[in-house]
């Protein structure tokens, strides 16, 4: 008797075929999403690489990273097409008085670099994360270590949950109404810091609380049973073990802070600013100055100025650098998280 004729022989029934087809669809959906993400990132990387890298040593377009945005002048000179940034164009004009005036086309923001934007973004991220981490970690400690269930805590949790759902543009309006107008801080770093910090606060609190929860109860009880005060227990025996988790999860918060445009549009970002943030008369001015920021710069160059082949370079270049920074932050968080997970096991 042939072996294939037993009762359990697999048959290609219509149900099985349908199953195969539907599972294929699910798989296709998954890979389609990944493909879309890859296309977005790939396009920007490939086209941005042209601006950021160059064929000659040092292979990286240092001008793009170290200088401020300038207008680009394109003109014909002795039969050659010249492309010069604003400053270079002026020296060139001085040296070659025969350059026909008015014959050059100029394109705003298309030359120079994005150094002030990088600086501004870094300042915004550092300041707002400092505020958000302080507030968020302390709040998480309260919620996880001190709080006992009750109406008050339910309210706090509800507030955190709801705060997480507030659109970023509403945070922008709030920051504008409170810090810029009511406190009179104008468009400033300080206003941007607080707006971004409040926006990212729920993320930080949730991440910190999870890390604190992951610290075994035995650590606390053991410490308390040895006569440690609650404060000593938290400082010596809970926070040190939760801190790596808090920091890595918070890096995702950094990615969000760095990536948001809407909250800083009216609170901290300038379209263009000649001075760098540290070029201030007195120390306190530092906090009350607006800055340029990468995401806002992308918005400006991609929608506020006339589009042409020259602006495209700076658009893709800025987007690439921005994506690179955010991707680095995100990857760092994932790698760190995995490493710490392996190191701290209890």
């Amino acid at each position: 008797m042939p072996a294939t004729h037993h009762v359990f022989r697999a048959q290609l029934t219509s149900a099985r075929r349908r199953e195969g087809f539907i599972f294929f669809l699910f798989g296709a959906a998954t890979y389609f999403v990944l493909l879309c993400g890859a296309v977005v990132i790939g396009t920007i990387v490939v086209r941005g690489a042209g601006t950021v890298f160059q064929a000659r040593a040092p292979f990286i377009n240092t001008t793009f990273f170290t200088e401020a945005p300038e207008s680009l002048h394109v003109f014909q000179y002795q039969g050659r097409k010249m492309e010069l940034g604003d400053a270079a164009f002026r020296t060139f004009e001085a040296a070659h008085p025969d350059v026909a005036k008015g014959k050059s086309d100029s394109y705003v923001y298309s030359a120079g670099g994005i150094f002030p934007c990088i600086v501004g973004t870094v300042l915004l991220v550092v300041g707002s994360m400092a505020i958000a981490l302080t507030l968020g970690v302390c709040a998480a400690i309260y919620l996880n270590e001190y709080a006992r269930d009750g109406t008050f805590i339910r309210f706090v949790r509800l507030a955190i949950l709801n705060l997480a759902g507030v659109p970023s543009i509403v945070f922008g309006l709030f920051g504008f109404g409170m810090f810029v107008i009511f406190f009179g801080w104008n468009v400033s770093l300080l206003a941007g810091w607080f707006t971004l910090a409040f926006m990212v606060l729920p993320v930080i609190i949730t991440a910190s609380e999870e890390s604190l929860k992951a610290v075994p109860k035995g650590f606390r009880e053991g410490s308390l049973a040895l006569g440690a005060t609650k404060w000593q227990t938290i400082i010596k025996n809970v926070l040190p073990y939760a801190l790596p988790g808090i920091l890595t999860s918070s890096i995702l918060g950094i990615a969000r802070v760095a990536g948001e445009t809407a909250p800083i549009m009216f609170t901290a970002a300038y379209v263009v600013r000649d001075k760098l943030p540290w070029q201030v008369d007195k120390f306190s001015d530092f906090f009350f100055q607006g800055v340029m920021a990468l995401p806002y710069h992308i918005y400006v160059v991609s929608s506020k100025i006339p589009q042409n082949e020259y602006t495209e370079r700076v658009q893709y270049g800025t987007a690439f650098v921005f994506l690179l920074i955010v991707a680095l932050i995100a990857t760092a968080s994932i790698v760190l998280r995995n490493r710490l997970r392996n190191r701290y096991k209890w």
């Binding site: 053991g222 410490s223 308390l224 073990y241």
Partner: peptide
């Protein structure tokens, strides 16, 4: 709690060295 110590069902050494585990209580004092 300093005078009434406790040992738990599930052993709970802190993820520190043996030396630090023992001296934890004294250092607190």
């Amino acid at each position: 709690r300093k005078r009434v110590g406790m040992v738990f069902q599930k052993s709970n050494p802190f993820p520190k060295s043996i030396y630090e585990n023992i001296t934890f209580g004294l250092r607190l004092q």
